[in-house]
């Protein structure tokens, strides 16, 4: 029973990794750069939700879409203002820039009096609810995570598959030059991709907050989401989620079955093994052919 409980906890945690990893993958596919600000975007999302609900007194169900929209706009702006001008520079500079933006975000949040320096609880309506399944008692805050993750993945799938803008995003990722030739607004789409990545990260933050409490350092979880993206193949959205859940479950079981300390390195052990066995990741089979 305890074992199953750990698996369920691992899945919930892994979905959070997966959601953040979706952001890595979206941005990587659009601009072939790695953004290390995703964890911080998640933290900002959680804080924004917290401020809206506890400081401004906005009801939860309004605060969620408001947070989502605001964070999407923020992601869009970050791309347009900071990332887009240096696209084409060596990948290293973009990585450093995103790390820098992350530091600034963390610092800015810490400067908020009281809120920024102490652990905060996000008051969600499903707090303290739980469901009993076959002798297991599972907290609602954990059950909600995979449900929302699944719904979000379905939405992303439908968007990329069937909407004009989604197909255009795929097109631009497969051949940027051809996308320009077709008159696809590649730059604006890059901004939108960042907006989507920030939105997904914000949702991850709102989902994680009831489980771990909010603090300005919660964004470090991004360091474990990046391995999730790598395990998934770096360029695959389903891969990101599967990679995230894999790491979440292994991590949780490592904490349960193995001595102290193994839990924290589990994610990296998984990545190392993955890179040795399947260097392209779980879903990295697609060959990109440029004729």
């Amino acid at each position: 029973m305890h074992f199953l409980q750990q698996v369920i906890n691992g899945i919930a945690q892994g979905c959070i990794y997966g959601l953040i990893a979706i952001g890595f993958v979206l941005i990587y596919k659009a601009t072939e750069t790695v953004s290390f600000v995703q964890g911080e975007l998640m933290m900002l999302g959680a804080f924004l939700g917290l401020v809206l609900i506890t400081v401004l007194g906005i009801p939860y169900w309004l605060a969620v879409p408001a947070t989502l929209l605001a964070m999407m706009a923020f992601g869009f702006l970050v791309e347009r203002v900071a990332i887009s001008p240096i696209l084409g520079e060596p990948a290293f500079s973009i990585v450093m820039l995103t790390l820098g933006i992350g530091y600034v975000a963390r610092g800015a949040v810490m400067m908020i009096p009281e809120l920024g320096t102490e652990l905060q609880v996000l008051p969600v309506p499903y707090r303290d609810q739980s469901v009993a399944i076959g002798g297991l008692i599972i907290g609602m805050e954990r059950l909600v995570v995979p449900a929302v993750t699944a719904a979000l993945c379905l939405m992303l799938y439908l968007m990329f598959r069937f909407t004009r803008i989604g197909v255009a995003m795929q097109a631009a990722s497969q051949s940027q030059s051809a996308a320009y030739y077709m008159g696809i607004p590649v730059r604006r789409l890059n901004g939108l991709v960042w907006g989507m990545a920030a939105g997904v990260a914000a949702i991850a933050g709102l989902l994680l907050a009831p489980i771990v409490m909010i603090d300005s350092n919660m964004g470090f979880i991004g360091l474990k989401a990046f391995p999730a993206a790598v395990v998934g193949g770096m360029a695959s959205l389903p891969g990101a989620v599967v990679g995230g859940v894999t790491i979440g479950v292994i991590e949780s079981l490592a904490g349960y079955l193995l001595p102290e300390g193994f839990k924290d390195v589990a994610a990296y052990v998984v990545v190392l093994i993955m890179l040795m066995v399947r260097p392209n990741g779980l879903f990295g089979g697609e060959v990109r052919k440029k004729v």
Binding site: V167, A171, A179, G183, K289, V291
Partner: peptide, 18 residues
Amino acid sequence: DVFPLLSVRDNLLMGAYT
């Protein structure tokens, strides 16, 4: 310079993007 992973149909629809 076709979009390699998009279907033929989606390639054509991208031609009509504007």
